[in-house]
Computed example of a mutant assay.
Amino acid sequence: MGTVVSLKKKTDRESGIDRIVGLVSEDMQRVNELILSKTGSEVTLIPEVAAHLIESGGKRLRPMLTLAAAGMFGYRGEGHIRLAASVEFMHTATLLHDDVVDESDMRRGKASARMVWGNEASVLVGDFLLGQAFKMMVEVGSLPALEVLADAAAVIAEGEVMQLVTTQNTATTEDEYLAVIRAKTAALFAAAGEVGAIVADRDAEERAALRSYGANLGNAFQLVDDALDYSGVQATLGKKVGDDFRDGKITLPVLLAYRRGNEEERTFWRRSLNDRAVEEGDLERAIELMASHRALEDTIGRARHYGAMARDALEIFPGSEYRQALTEVIDFCVSREF
């Protein structure tokens, strides 16, 4: 059996997301109510599929970033509620589409929507949610916010296509991998932070700072997620350990182990990932190789680097409970087990 690397970092619970959850709880309740109202449709399959994922226990971290960013500036209007709901709908639509592309059986510990209703329903309901997201953006009446979120939607789609190219391709470079996660994951984190500043009518420097914070947070989040696929446990991940390996996904732990390995080890990676000729015991072998080449530890090290950049991006803002909450989100993302 391979060595399972523990990525847990013991921190005080207050260093997690408790603070941001508490600060935005009232606004988040309004976001949740808006989300439920916007999934309504006379086509009964739409609310069924949407509710399956929306109510499955996600932390709603991205919309919380929008609410906290707006709160940091003392914003008291209504626009941040619709923008936060738009961000969550974009994220949910992406998950529905991802599960079809990846042929995933599980999502957040339960059967994925595609397994219950099929690929066609998952894709079309995802499209419905994107449409609802853009309707809410228009209702806010902020062209800059609409532009930022529309750009993010286009970049996310580009990231999906880029990932199709890199899947099952061990020749992928680290730069190419990072380009995928910047598009697929970090772009929405960046937009979520920036629109919180936009709706509060802040200047270009503050918008850029929150965009940088979100982008670097998103990079860190995805790097940890990729490491957890080879080190976590199913109960906390909401998926089977090794799903990325079975799907032939080329993530940073794989790239590091592949590059640092000898020719016999690279042959193993090409057979199991490029050729998808996975045999009994291959996952354990993959984990062993990652351990011997410090692939998981170094992936987490890179995540911490991005976390440090996210922390630095917040330095231009005066000290406040909101800024502290946003800082603690970084610690949560880098040290999380789930």
Rank of each mutant, 00 (worst) to 15 (best):
E288K: 10
V161A: 06
G22M: 14
V24Y: 14
F221V: 00
V233Q: 09
V31H: 03
E263M: 04
A310P: 06
E120G: 12
A152L: 07
E103S: 09
L61P: 05
V278M: 02
L164E: 15
A157E: 12
W269Q: 03
D18Y: 13
T92G: 05
I54Y: 05
L34A: 12
E328W: 01
A70V: 15
S56R: 13
R285H: 09
F221C: 00
S37D: 12
R114H: 03
L53V: 14
M309C: 08
F89R: 01
D312C: 12
A51N: 05
D243G: 06
A133V: 03
W117P: 13
T66W: 07
I287A: 04
R271E: 08
L61W: 09
G22S: 11
R114D: 07
R82L: 10
G58K: 11
T236W: 00
A277Q: 14
A227I: 02
E120I: 13
A192H: 10
W117V: 14
G126Y: 06
E158Y: 01
L178C: 04
A197H: 06
M136T: 12
G242K: 01
R270W: 11
G218M: 01
A179E: 14
N216T: 00
R311F: 15
G238I: 00
F245Y: 10
V161Y: 03
F317D: 08
L23W: 11
A310G: 15
Y213W: 00
E88N: 07
I287P: 02
V233E: 07
E176N: 09
T267G: 09
L130F: 15
T236A: 01
L237S: 10
R302V: 11
Y306G: 06
I181P: 00
G248R: 05
E88S: 08
R294C: 07
E279R: 13
M137C: 11
S104T: 13
H305I: 02
G193C: 07
L228S: 08
R60P: 00
E280I: 15
G301A: 14
A68I: 02
F73N: 01
V233R: 11
R76I: 02
T236L: 04
D27L: 11
S292L: 15
L95H: 06
